[in-house]
Structure formats: structure tokens, C-alpha cells
């Protein structure tokens, strides 16, 4: 083993169930800072749930998660997950951002307001500074001219770009992308994936991307995880996983999705 620095995200034996349905059944994962990880696998395999647990939208029953060495979830003596004190939990959560499949833009706010609201209310940035920065991010996603529009006036692809700008404006160290192209018309997908690729190349954020686009996973990411039945069945370099998968389940999955 090389004595590489401590991984930025450390996940230990993470379990999550919905009623009787065990969705995550012992996830163990280390991710170094700046890595771009694509998460693939059949639906219901737990990919999105892992992201939602990291974003604290779901609470795991069991397991530990460390972000930069600080516990987001830890275990008490009886094997149950506990959270750190509220302020610490919130501070840690604010280092994580998420983009959703259905965009979830705030419909009662303009595009600009969607992007500035959290920096102003959560980080305490002045409106003026927040606006200047929001325009920078909107420009980055190619939508500066839509700053005063309402979400209802945008196409799906434009909405998703705004959602990405909104998440970027919080300067997250970790960014979670949950099937962000699945609700888009096919011709809009390429632009969003190119944007992800550009963000990943900069190595400024650690990115976890749940995606059904195998070409993107193979060409743009540093690493690919294959989920099946609530565990990580395969974890490695994209080329290795796509050319020499070690499990039959991976081969079957890749065969079925690549043949479509």
C-alpha cells in the first residue's frame, strides 16, 4: 500500500432500508478529493439512494460516512447511526451539493433568484456579490441571458443548467448528480454531459454521477462503480470495467444497455 493521503469521502458498511426493502446492503467506498466517479447499474440497485444518503435526504440505519475526516454519520454502541451535533452536521452538509433528475427549481423565483437565494440566506453573501457570482455561473452554463426568466419559461435542458449553476453557487466540495439527464429530451442530453465533463476536468470538486449513459461513464469519468442489489459489485477504471468486467452480472448489464 502506498501511504496516499486519507480519502476525502470514506463510507463504511452503509445500510439503508425502506420498510422490508433493503436498498443499500453494506456499501464500502473511499473516494479521493477531485475524483469524478460514475455510478452505473440496474434501476433499484441503490445508486440514487447512496447519493440521497450522502446528501442527508435519507438517514442510513447503519454505517459510517466521513467527509474530509469528519463524521457525517457515525455508529453508536448499539450499531445504530448517529448524527454529529446540529451545527457540525449542517456545516458538513453545506460542503455537499446535489442536482436532481427533476431539476426542482423554485418556480416562484426568477432564474437569478434561484441561484442567489441560498448563497444569500445560507452563506450570508451580500445580494450584490451573490448576483455577480450567479451571473458568472449562469454564463458558464450558457444561460446568462435568461437571468430574469422564470423556470416555467425554460426548456428542460435549460432548467437543468440553472439547477447546476444553483448548486455550483454554493461552492460544494462534493457534487452529487442523480440521473440528471433522465428527464430530458434526447437532443438536450449531450450539452449537459459536456458540461459535466468540463466540470470534472477541473478537479475542483469530487463528483459522483449516477448515469445511464455508458459512453459518458467510460470516457469522462476517472472511475466507475457498478451497483447491483444494494452492493458495489465492481469498482475500477472505466476501461477495465467496460472491457474486462469480473462479474457475470456486470457483463449482462453492460450487454443489455449497450445493445439498446
Amino acid at each position: 500500500m502506498t501511504d496516499s493521503p486519507e480519502p476525502f469521502i470514506q463510507i463504511r458498511d452503509l445500510h439503508k432500508s425502506f420498510g422490508d426493502l433493503k436498498v443499500l446492503q453494506g456499501i464500502n467506498l473511499d473516494i479521493p478529493a477531485g475524483e469524478m466517479v460514475s455510478v452505473i447499474g440496474p434501476s433499484g440497485s441503490g445508486k440514487s439512494t447512496l447519493l440521497r444518503v450522502l446528501m442527508t435526504l435519507e438517514r442510513p440505519e447503519q454505517g459510517e460516512v466521513l467527509i474530509g475526516g469528519e463524521p457525517l454519520y457515525s455508529m453508536d454502541g448499539e450499531g445504530h447511526t448517529t448524527l454529529p451535533p446540529k451545527a457540525q452536521f449542517r456545516a458538513l452538509r453545506n460542503r455537499i451539493g446535489m442536482v436532481f433528475q427533476h431539476f426542482n427549481l423554485f418556480p416562484h423565483m426568477t432564474v437569478l433568484r434561484n441561484v442567489t437565494e441560498a448563497p444569500v440566506r445560507v452563506l450570508g453573501v451580500s445580494r450584490k456579490d451573490a448576483k455577480a457570482e450567479a451571473m458568472k455561473y449562469l454564463d458558464e452554463v450558457g444561460l446568462a441571458e435568461k437571468a430574469d426568466a422564470y423556470p416555467a419559461q425554460l426548456s428542460g435542458g435549460q432548467k437543468q443548467r440553472v439547477a447546476i449553476a444553483r448548486a455550483l453557487a454554493m461552492h460544494p466540495e462534493i457534487m452529487l448528480f442523480d440521473e440528471i439527464t433522465s428527464a430530458l429530451d434526447p437532443e438536450l442530453v449531450g450539452g449537459i454531459l459536456a458540461l459535466l465533463d468540463r466540470l470534472g476536468k477541473r478537479k475542483e470538486m469530487t463528483m459522483l454521477i449516477v448515469t445511464h449513459h455508458m459512453n459518458f461513464a467510460r470516457q469522462s469519468s476517472d472511475r466507475v462503480l457498478f451497483f447491483d442489489g444494494g452492493v458495489i459489485l465492481e469498482d475500477g477504471k472505466p476501461d477495465d470495467i467496460f472491457t474486462h468486467p469480473t462479474h457475470d452480472r456486470t457483463r449482462e448489464f453492460l450487454k443489455s444497455v449497450l445493445e439498446v
Partner: peptide
């Protein structure tokens, strides 16, 4: 969920 993710 979006609000939670943004830290509100």
C-alpha cells in the same frame, strides 16, 4: 429536498 440540499 432541493432546499435541504442547498442548506436552507
Amino acid at each position: 429536498e432541493a432546499a435541504t440540499a442547498l442548506g436552507f
